[in-house]
Design a protein around this nucleic acid. Structure first.
Length: 376
RNA sequence: GGGGAGAUGGCAGAGUAGUCAAAUGCACCAGACUGUAAAUCUGGCGACUUCGGUCUACGAAGGUGCGAAUCCUUCUCUCCCCA
């Protein structure tokens, strides 16, 4: 299990590589679709594969609540349960510390969650989270961390970093780790909000523990766009060069291309699926709000240059009609197109890096991609 | 032919003298969404506007009254029941 860098761009910090996992190689940079509950909403595994998906993401916290460890164990792990044969990463529940803030209490030993499903309380410790991901059998595990909101005062970030560091130590030392180290990689997560000195301290602490890869967390939780990139680049620069770097949760197309130039290898984001279900499609020329009136009689595909099954088969007008009439197929068609677009975009960027034309690709993409097509 | 009910903004439907440019829902028009509590949420939706207002509006016409979608008269139309 190792990460190898194949090529570095000369005009930026972009890099192309391969991460070997127990279930196959993942080419980087890589976008992984988010399948929180063991499914990328609305899409089948075959469809994900047809989009070029190499790595999938699921969420330990959500799967712990439902269907729960007992069933997942009986099923033989998450791969078998959901019939996904390729590599998979699982997030820990650290993001839920942020997104379900009203339902949890962070303590030194872990997080107490009140289930958003039935109100029952659960105490998650870093060890339990690793143990659960061991049971899931994910190829890349994430440790429990504390993802903070933005903005947040500095001394609160300092306190939080102590917790995340403490949990990182516990995660790496968890009893079950030694048996599965060969099969299940573990990434460390760097927090620190928008404070550079704290990001630096976090990198030093987390890297000193030693992980198979490093994630930059607590990004894109409300900061201005420029600040996202400033912090992401600053943090990426400090991370070990020979390990994969994962920018957690970020995602608009332009931002991912920029982040690749900042030295990021892995992305995940709910935007292609969530926004897809809400009628927003991404193309090389920009975003389409397909529910909007201008598409009523637009009989072109979402993207003329796209090879996905949605674009090969259906028109904007038809998809708008599906949203307009609340037909389920609309959600699926746009989700599929968006996943294809995201996965391909990053793969195209990778090819550009390997062929020494990344800066040209980056400039052309920025030039062409408009915020919005049709509508305001 | 006799008796009864009713006509409100694109539709459905509240309101029954002042706080009504008129509730609410739908439709329509936009916006948001970043390690998914999301097929969700938010805003707009008579015209004009120097954004303070101004004007035109509750089937039609006329009336009462300081004031009418709301009361009275006539007319037009719709629905229901009985013959």
């Amino acid at each position: 299990m190792s990460f190898s860098l194949l090529h570095k761009d000369k005009t930026s910090k972009a890099r192309a590589g391969v991460l070997k996992t127990a279930r196959g190689d993942v080419r980087t940079p890589c976008f992984m679709p988010v399948g929180t509950q063991g499914t990328v909403k609305t899409l089948s595994n075959d469809e994900l594969v047809s989009c070029g998906t190499e790595l999938l993401m699921a969420n330990a916290y959500h799967l712990y609540l439902r269907p729960g460890g007992k069933i997942l164990k009986k099923a033989g792990g998450l791969h078998k349960f959901m019939s996904w044969k390729g590599p998979m990463m699982t997030d820990s529940g650290g993001y839920q510390v942020f997104s379900l803030a009203v339902l949890r209490k962070v303590k030194k030993e872990g997080v107490e969650f009140r289930s958003h499903i039935d109100g029952s309380t659960h105490f998650l410790t870093p060890e339990k989270v690793i143990e659960f991901q061991g049971l899931l059998g994910s190829d890349i595990m994430m440790p429990l961390d504390e993802c903070l909101h933005y903005p947040v005062v500095k001394n609160q970030v300092e306190d939080s970093l102590k917790t995340t560091y403490h949990w990182a130590l516990k995660s790496q030392a968890a009893g079950c780790r030694s048996q599965v180290k060969e099969k299940q990689q573990l990434f460390g997560i760097v927090q620190g909000s928008t404070y550079k000195d704290l990001r630096k301290r976090a990198v030093e602490e987390i890297a000193s523990i030693g992980f198979d890869g490093y994630a930059i967390g607590g990004i894109a939780v409300g900061e201005p766009r420029e600040l996202i990139h400033e912090i992401a680049e600053y943090t990426a620069d400090l991370l070990p060069e020979n390990k994969p770097r994962y920018l957690m949760g970020m995602g608009m197309p332009l931002d991912m291309v920029e982040a690749i130039a900042e030295g990021i290898d892995f992305f995940d984001c709910v935007v292609p699926t969530r926004n897809g279900r809400n009628g927003q499609a991404f193309t090389t020329e920009g975003e389409l709000q397909l529910r909007n009136a201008p598409f009523k009689e637009d009989f072109r595909p979402i993207d003329e240059n796209c090879g996905c099954s949605t674009c090969r088969t259906h028109t904007r007008a038809y998809i708008r009609h599906l949203f307009n009439t609340e037909e389920i197929l609309g959600l699926r068609l746009v989700s599929l197109h968006n996943i294809y677009f995201y996965v391909k975009l990053i793969q195209i960027a990778r090819e550009a890096i390997l062929e020494n034309r990344f800066s040209k690709f980056r400039e052309e993409f920025k030039e062409k991609f408009k915020k919005r097509i049709g509508g305001k």
